[in-house]
Design a protein around this nucleic acid. Structure first.
Length: 753
DNA sequence: GTTACGCATGGTA
DNA sequence: GTACCATGCGTAA
C-alpha cells in the first residue's frame, strides 16, 4: 500500500497534528492518515521511499548530495536517528541498518540490509522482538554503522498507548521506548529498580523529557538514558536544552547540530526559536569545551544575525559576564579553553588586538592577551568597557562570541540575563515579582505551561544537573530579576528622584569605584540598593481584588499574583524618624511622595554617615580594640548586599587570616612594640611612610593646612586615614607611631561623605 | 586622586 | 589534588 507521507510533521495539506488511524508499514513502522485530508504521515522506524510518494530529503553527511532519508528526517531529529544509517541514494555511502536481536546480553544481527538502494529490507519486525515484558511493545534494536564504523546502539520501542518506559538496567539499551505523544513531543519514562521514576502522565503535567537523537557520528556513544536523566551527559557529544514552551530535554549529537537543529523548521514552517546549546563542531574546541560555554542561540537569532551581518555566523562560545567582566576595569576574562580554541594563539603576554563587530554593527578592537597564572594562563579581553557600555550589558548578562565565515572575523553578541531566564529556558518567570524586563509586571507568560510554575522548572532542571539552570537559579535567587524591573521606564518616571539610575545588583558590584573607596562606596551602594528594593517593593501594589499565592523558591517565599501590580499607587513608603520604612496604604500625592523620597534619602544618608562613623571607629580603635564582628564583617557585608559573597569580603579574609583586620589583639591586650614586625605593624609602618611622604610633599608645597587634615579621617583613604588619628605630631615628625593608641573620636573624627 | 596594569589569592568544580 | 577563574591588592602612571 502506498501512502503519501508529508514533511515537517504535517500532511501534504499542512494538517499535521491529528491522526486518524495508523497501520504498519512493511518495515514495521506506522503511517497514519490525516483526518482532514486523508494523506498519511509516516511515523515509522522504516519509512522507505519505495513505498512512499513523497518524502523528505536532506543532504548526505558524506557527499553533501541530497539523499532520501525518509519523511521523518525532515520532521524530527530523533526520527532522523531512527534512520541514522540511512543510505544516501546518490553516493550509497551510508549506514547499513541491520536488524539485530537481543539474546540475553548479546545482540546479533537478524538481517542485514544490503548495501544497495533497490534492495532495502522489507521484512516485518520479527515477532521475537515483541518482548521485554511489555505486551504491546515493539522492540527493535538497531545498529547503525556509519561510514564503516560502528556507532551507538540504541533501541526503540513503540506502543500504541501513551505509556512508555525505559529500562535503565539494560546496559545495551541506550534508549528504549521512545514514543511520540500526540503533541509531538517525545516522552519516555525511566525505570530504576524496576520502579518507574517517570511516567507519561506525570510528564504530561510537569516534566516531559524530549529525546532528540541525531545520527551518530560514529565516534562516540550517545548518552544513556540514565545519564540523561541524571544529567551526566555533559562533556559528551550531546547537548541539552529545554524546548521553548515545553519542558523537554533535547539530546543531539554534534554532527547533526547544524543540519537539523539550526536549519530545522518547526512543523508550522516557522524557524525554530528553541534555544539550544551548540557544542563545537570543529576546531580545537571540539570535545573539550564545557557545555556551559556552548553558545545558546536560537535559530531565529542566528538567522537574524546572519541576515543582519550578511554573513554566515558560526556561534563559538558564550560567557556569563561576571561583575569584574562588566565592571569598569574593562577586562573580560575569557574561558581558557575557549580562548585557546577559537582565538588566535598568542605567545606573548601582550597578546594581539582582536577586531570584533557587535550585533549592532559597531566595530571594536579588543586586546586579546593573557597573564601567567599558576603555571597556566589567564586569558582576557581588554578594553571591553566601551562595548559593554554600548550594549548596556551588566554582570549576569551573557556575551556570545561568534565567527563570521568566511573571513574569520568575530562577532560579539549578547543575551540579557533576564532573557536567559525566560527565553533560554523556554519559560518566563511565572511570578510577577520576578518577571523579566520584557515582561515586567506582566502575568504568566504564554510560554509557560499551564499549571507549571517556575519553581517546577528550577527543580526540574536542577534535578537534571543542568549547570545553566543552576546559574539561572542562582541568578533568580539573587533577585536580578527585580533589579531589571527597577530599570524599567515606569519606575524611573515615577521615582525619578529616588532611583535616578537604579542600581542593579550587577551595577552595584561593578561600579565600585577606585580601590581605596571600595568599602565605603560599596556600602553606599548596598544601602542604596536595599532602600530602593524596599521602596520598590512597597511601591508594588497588588492589583485590586487579586489574591496572591505564596510560592517558595530557593527557600525564599514569594508572592505570586495573577495580575500585574499597580505601580506607585496605593502603597507608599513612609520613613519614620528612625529611618526605618513603613508602608501606608493610602493614596499619596506626588508632593507627599516627594517628601517620602526626600526623607528616605535623608535616612539613607544618615545611615551612610552612621556606617562610615562606625567604620572609622573601628579603624581608629585599630589594634587595640577587638573588632566587632558586626561592623567588620556583617556590616561591611550588608544584609541586603547580595553580592557580598563575591565582592564585599575579600576571599583572603577568612578564618585564620592574619591581615591587619584580622589579627587585632583583644581589647587592652597585646600591645605592639615599636620594633614589632607582625603583618599589622608592617602595614601600619608602611602607611606611616606613605603619610610622611605626603606630609613632606605638602609641606614643601607650602600647604600649611594640609598637614592638619592628616588628623582628620579621609573618607577615601581607608584605614590610612584612621591611622592618622593614632599619630601625634611629634611621632609624625619622628616617623614613629603608637600602634596602641586610642584617639578621641569625638574630636578628631570628621566624615566627609 | 584616579586609573590602569600585572599579579596573587582563594573559592569552586 | 588540580585547573580554572573571579577578583582583590599593590604599584605605577
Amino acid at each position: 500500500m502506498e501512502v503519501e507521507v508529508c514533511m515537517n510533521g504535517a500532511c501534504k495539506n499542512g494538517y499535521a497534528r491529528e491522526w486518524k488511524k495508523g497501520w504498519p508499514l512493511r518495515s514495521g513502522g506506522f503511517a497514519r492518515l490525516c483526518d482532514k485530508c486523508g494523506s498519511a504521515y509516516a511515523n515509522s522506524i522504516f519509512c522507505e521511499k519505495f513505498h512512499l510518494h513523497q518524502t523528505g530529503w536532506r543532504e548526505c553527511d558524506f557527499c553533501n548530495k541530497s539523499i532520501h532519508c525518509g519523511c521523518i528526517i525532515s520532521r524530527f531529529s530523533f526520527e532522523y536517528l531512527d534512520f541514522g544509517g540511512i543510505r544516501c541514494s546518490t553516493c550509497l555511502k551510508a549506514s547499513q541498518l541491520p536488524l539485530i536481536q537481543e539474546t540475553g546480553n548479546s545482540i546479533r544481527p537478524i538481517r542485514s540490509v544490503k548495501n544497495h538502494a533497490s534492495d532495502r529490507h522489507t521484512e516485518h519486525i520479527d515477532d521475537r522482538l515483541f518482548l521485554d515484558g511489555c505486551s504491546k511493545r515493539k522492540l527493535m534494536h538497531m545498529r547503525s554503522i556509519v561510514d564503516g564504523r560502528e556507532s551507538s546502539r540504541w533501541t526503540q520501542a513503540k506502543r500504541d498507548d501513551r505509556d512508555s518506559c525505559i529500562d535503565l538496567n539494560r546496559e545495551d539499551m541506550r534508549f528504549s521506548n521512545v514514543m511520540k505523544s500526540s503533541n509531538h513531543s517525545l516522552k519516555f519514562t525511566t525505570l530504576e529498580n524496576n520502579r518507574p521514576t517517570w511516567d507519561s502522565r506525570s510528564m504530561h503535567r510537569s516534566s516531559s523529557l524530549n529525546i532528540s537523537l541525531g545520527a551518530s557520528s560514529g565516534n562516540s556513544a550517545l548518552p544513556s538514558a540514565l545519564e540523561i536523566v541524571e544529567g551526566r551527559f555533559e562533556g559528551k557529544t550531546s547537548f541539552s536544552s529545554f524546548h521553548q514552551g515545553q519542558r523537554s530535554l533535547s539530546i543531539m549529537p554534534k554532527p547533526l547540530m547544524n543540519a537539523i537543529t539550526i536549519n530545522m523548521e518547526t512543523s508550522n514552517g516557522m524557524i525554530s526559536q528553541e534555544r539550544v546549546a551548540r557544542p563545537p563542531t570543529d576546531g580545537k574546541g571540539k570535545n573539550m569545551l564545557l557545555s556551559r560555554y556552548w553558545p545558546r542561540i536560537t535559530d531565529q537569532e542566528l538567522q537574524q544575525l546572519s541576515g543582519d551581518l550578511k554573513s554566515t555566523i558560526v556561534p563559538l562560545f558564550e560567557k556569563v559576564l561576571s561583575a569584574s567582566d562588566a565592571g569598569r576595569i574593562g577586562r573580560l576574562v575569557l574561558p581558557k579553553s575557549c580562548a585557546e580554541a577559537y582565538f588566535p594563539p598568542i605567545s606573548q603576554s601582550e597578546g594581539l588586538p582582536l577586531h570584533m563587530k557587535d550585533v549592532k554593527g559597531n566595530e571594536w578592537t579588543f586586546q586579546f592577551r593573557f597573564w601567567p597564572n599558576n603555571n597556566s594562563r589567564m586569558y582576557v579581553l581588554e578594553g571591553v568597557t566601551p562595548c559593554i557600555q554600548a550594549l548596556q550589558l551588566n554582570a549576569g548578562d551573557i556575551v556570545i562570541f561568534s565567527r563570521i565565515d568566511p573571513g574569520g572575523k568575530f562577532v560579539l553578541g549578547f543575551r540579557r540575563a533576564s532573557d536567559s531566564i525566560d527565553s533560554q529556558d523556554g519559560f518566563a518567570a511565572h511570578s510577577n515579582v520576578f518577571s523579566t524586563k520584557e515582561t515586567t509586571f506582566s502575568g504568566a507568560s504564554a510560554n509557560m505551561h499551564p499549571g507549571n510554575s517556575y519553581h517546577d522548572l528550577l527543580q526540574t532542571r536542577k534535578g537534571n544537573g543542568d549547570p545553566y539552570l543552576n546559574r539561572c537559579s542562582e541568578h533568580f535567587r539573587l533577585g536580578t530579576g527585580i533589579a531589571d524591573c527597577l530599570r524599567t521606564e515606569n519606575f524611573e518616571m515615577v521615582n525619578n528622584d529616588l532611583v535616578q539610575l537604579p542600581i542593579s545588583v550587577s551595577e552595584k558590584t561593578q561600579n565600585i569605584g577606585p580601590m581605596c573607596k571600595r568599602l565605603l562606596v560599596h556600602n553606599e551602594d548596598a544601602m542604596e540598593l536595599r532602600v530602593t528594593w524596599e521602596e520598590a517593593q512597597g511601591l508594588l501594589c497588588p492589583a485590586p481584588r487579586v489574591k496572591s499565592s505564596i510560592v517558595t523558591i530557593e527557600d525564599q517565599e514569594f508572592e505570586e499574583y495573577e495580575e500585574p501590580p499597580v505601580f506607585g499607587k496605593k502603597t507608599t513608603i513612609n520613613a519614620r524618624s528612625s529611618g526605618s520604612l513603613s508602608l501606608a496604604t493610602e493614596e499619596t500625592s506626588p508632593q507627599e511622595l516627594d517628601n517620602v523620597l526626600v526623607t528616605s534619602k535623608d535616612s539613607k544618608k544618615r545611615r551612610i554617615m552612621e556606617k562610615a562613623k562606625s567604620i572609622i571607629e573601628h579603624e581608629a580603635f585599630g589594634l587595640n580594640e577587638e573588632p566587632s564582628a558586626g561592623v567588620l564583617d556583617d556590616d561591611l557585608a550588608e544584609p541586603g548586599d547580595t553580592s557580598g559573597g563575591a565582592t564585599t569580603k575579600h576571599p583572603r579574609h577568612r578564618s585564620g587570616c592574619i591581615c591587619i583586620m584580622c589579627i587585632r589583639p583583644p581589647s587592652g591586650k597585646g600591645r605592639h612594640r615599636a620594633t614589632c614586625t607582625c603583618p599589622a605593624c608592617i602595614t601600619v609602618k608602611r602607611r606611616l611612610d606613605s603619610l610622611m611622604t605626603r606630609k613632606q610633599q605638602r609641606q614643601s608645597e607650602g600647604e600649611a593646612d594640609g598637614s592638619q587634615k592628616d588628623y582628620i579621617y579621609e573618607g577615601d583613604e581607608g584605614d590610612g586615614g584612621s591611622l592618622s588619628g593614632c599619630l601625634k605630631e611629634g611621632e609624625l615628625s619622628a616617623g614613629q607611631i603608637d600602634l596602641n593608641c586610642r584617639p578621641n573620636l569625638d574630636e578628631d573624627m570628621q566624615v566627609d561623605i
